[in-house]
Every structure is written in structure tokens, then in C-alpha cells.
């Protein structure tokens, strides 16, 4: 159900900038803030991935784009476009932590509570480095421009 007090489209970057490439979501949101191509219907938000905050942020939106670091084994900097219906996590990881399985848990919890946005896209970026520290690795940093373009495409399609 759309909410009049909220912009209809949300782009939310999820991650922890103190964990190197886990900060790719927040980094791309920061870059979008200076981007003149961004429609005024889009709200930009940074979250740490704690599932219930994500679900609250989704509420009342027509379209949601989530940007997060995702590990699949592809080369660092690879951008994946994921359909929430196929996002899955291995047994045992489920709901283990508000930090470990944030977006996946948010999707499952929102599904259980019938609060999943109708139009939800996840852009996952393959990280090179997830150790403690600041700054993106060169391969993920190089992917930011393409990621910005993809987000603009998703929010305007």
C-alpha cells in the first residue's frame, strides 16, 4: 500500500563501511547523492542490513532497489541482479544474526509477514575484501560507475 509520506522509490545501500567492500552499498548511495540523473521520486538510504529496519524502510514503496555485497565466487566487482524469489541462504545460516544474513532474512521475514514489496530488486556486488578496515578494494571501486548506471536504470525503468 503506497504511503503519501514516503517517496515511491527507495534505493537502499546495505553494509558496513568499516568492513572494506561490505561498504559498497553505502558507498554507491553516497555517490548517487551527487548524481544529477537521479529522479526526485527516489529516496536514498543507508542501512546496516538489520532485517526489521529494512522491512520498515520498504514499507509503502512502489519499488525498492537494495544494493549489498554478495558472495558467489565470481570475480570481485561483478554485479549480480537478483530476484528476491531466488535469493536463498544455506541451511544453518538462516536468521543467525542481524548482520550475517541481513537481506536474506529480511526477505524471508517480510514474506512470512506479507510485507515484501511487490517490486524488489537486489543488486549484489562481489567483494574482494571483507576484513576490518575502511576503503573499497580497487576492483569494487571500479565497479561503482557501472553500479550507479544500473541503479539509475532500475529506478527509472
Amino acid at each position: 500500500m503506497p504511503r503519501p509520506d514516503r517517496l515511491p522509490v527507495l534505493a537502499v545501500g546495505v553494509g558496513n563501511p568499516m568492513r572494506r567492500d561490505d561498504g559498497v552499498g553505502p558507498a554507491v548511495i553516497d555517490r548517487l547523492r551527487t548524481c544529477s540523473d537521479l529522479p526526485s521520486t527516489v529516496e536514498l538510504l543507508i542501512l546496516d542490513g538489520e532485517p526489521t529496519r529494512l522491512i520498515d524502510a520498504w514499507h509503502g514503496r512502489e519499488r525498492v532497489v537494495v544494493i549489498d555485497a554478495t558472495q558467489s565466487g565470481d570475480p570481485p566487482g561483478t554485479i549480480h541482479r537478483l530476484d528476491p524469489a531466488i535469493v536463498d541462504i544455506p541451511p544453518g545460516r538462516h536468521d543467525r544474526s542481524s548482520h550475517g544474513a541481513g537481506v536474506e532474512t529480511a526477505i524471508d521475514l517480510a514474506t512470512a509477514l506479507d510485507r515484501l514489496p511487490e517490486d524488489l530488486v537486489i543488486l549484489g556486488v562481489e567483494p574482494a575484501e571483507l576484513n576490518l578496515g575502511t576503503g573499497l578494494s580497487p576492483s569494487v571501486d571500479r565497479a561503482l560507475s557501472e553500479l550507479v548506471a544500473q541503479i539509475i536504470h532500475e529506478v527509472t525503468r
Binding site: P90, P91, G92, R93, H94, D95, R96, S97, S98, H99, G100
Partner: peptide, 11 residues
């Protein structure tokens, strides 16, 4: 041994 310990905030 098990997989990850579920539902603890952290690892």
C-alpha cells in the same frame, strides 16, 4: 559439529 549457531547477534 554443526553449522553456524543460529540467532545470536554476531558470529
Amino acid at each position: 559439529s554443526t553449522g553456524a549457531l543460529a540467532r545470536v547477534e554476531g558470529e
